[in-house]
Design a protein around this nucleic acid. Structure first.
Lengths: 233, 233
DNA sequence: TAGTGGTCTAGACCACAAA
DNA sequence: TTGTGGTCTAGACCACTAT
């Protein structure tokens, strides 16, 4: 896709400081000429950057470069999985528990699957640069993700699903909240029972709309920070 | 804008259950004919619904209706301000503190304005249906928002800025985290010191890129829930 | 193979900002 | 008034799904 490539090029240009003098992108017309593509492509490319929070549009004036505070933060709309998002840091994943079980009524409801459907139930503890970051309680529908072993669970499960199984991940619903830690989770995070935890419940779907994963992740309040953008048109 | 109107129409149709039998939208071609608009409009309209999480696309197959769990949740990408988002509930806002002060070095840095720029410093406590929801510590640049009094602060400040001042709000950066409550904030939330709090730091900008507001909001962990979507293409 | 969403082009015209 | 982003059309062709 031309517009995706163009978006990458422009992104690279921004990161390399090519537009530092004006703090704005070339005009659409300019980009059309410069890259020999149609306005459709240029606008699509730019809209990717807008969505990503790299630039903002001012009608009649130009596309301005936006500086954000996302450094050191995790992204809520992250498309890759934590392991890949924190590339550059030492991310360690410990598989605390892994078993294949038939879905109970509760699990079946959560996973939108039939009672008794085989699912993997996994508990993983993650640390970044030696510090406990999160504890994840997660289910995977085994009818979709056929095999998960300890080795696989130690890596990026989303990466495994995309790259190895060639499944296309589509979208996810998330609910964010905050609560006191239970003893079990607190111990895994190296915190005290009753300490705060940022909690994200995540329902993940393939591109075809089939739900393949449900998870609840407890984050260490001392280090976890999430970044989000809102456009308000 | 035709496509915005079309998006609203389709949204209404979905809510009224018009597509309940198939759980998918009419084809693009169909919508083009049905509404007498171009494919550009149809695709733009649908992409609004996709972004909003109402439908998801399956190439070669159709646009499917998505059911989400957003009920009872606040939206992180809310464009309106909490007061309007919770329409239907009894939202009460108590202005705990309101003063106009010259920006200290710290505030000036946070607000991206000059040292000494007049800013409003406001503390507000919000309750929903009688339950304490949040405590907000917020700064407004007085060079942009000239007048804020107690009366105005008791309502929707974002609504006031948009509707009365006719300023165009553009975008916001948010950082989410979690921490223990201090005594002062805990009292305002009717919770105990050291209880968990979901914290959102918010930097808000006008469409022209000028920052007009910085805030930190502490949410009651017992009732606050946020909803977010992730597209993963 | 037919149906449906995704990409791409060329070009007209509108809306807003800044000089 | 000029520059620049936003809306809209018509139409060609590609990629994927389902049968």
């Amino acid at each position: 896709m031309k517009y995706q490539e163009l978006a990458n090029k422009i992104k690279k240009n921004i990161e390399e400081g090519l537009y530092r003098d004006t703090e704005k992108l070339p005009t659409e017309e300019n980009l059309v000429e410069q890259y020999g593509v149609s306005k459709y492509c240029v606008r699509n490319a730019i809209s990717i950057l807008v969505e990503f929070g790299l630039v903002y549009p001012v009608q009649g004036s130009g596309m301005y470069i936006r500086d954000s505070k996302r450094e050191g933060c995790l992204s809520l709309r992250n498309t890759r999985g934590v392991t890949e998002e924190l590339a550059g840091h030492t991310v360690k994943t410990k598989v605390v528990h892994l078993e294949k079980i038939p879905a109970t009524e509760k699990v079946a409801k959560r996973m939108k699957c039939k009672l008794g459907t085989p699912v993997y139930y996994i508990i993983r503890a993650r640390s970044v640069d030696g510090e406990p970051l999160s504890v994840e309680y997660t289910y995977y529908n085994q009818k979709i993700v056929h095999v998960i072993d300890k080795k696989i669970a130690e890596g990026s499960l989303f990466g495994y699903i995309k790259n190895d199984l060639k499944l296309s991940i589509g979208f996810a619903d998330k609910i964010l909240r905050c609560d006191k830690l239970t003893q079990e989770t607190a111990e895994l995070l190296g915190l005290a029972t009753g300490d705060p935890a940022l909690i994200i419940e995540d329902d993940a779907y393939l591109s075809n709309g089939k739900m393949f994963n449900a998870s609840v992740v407890f984050y260490n309040y001392k280090i976890a920070r999430f970044f989000e953008l809102a456009e308000m048109r």
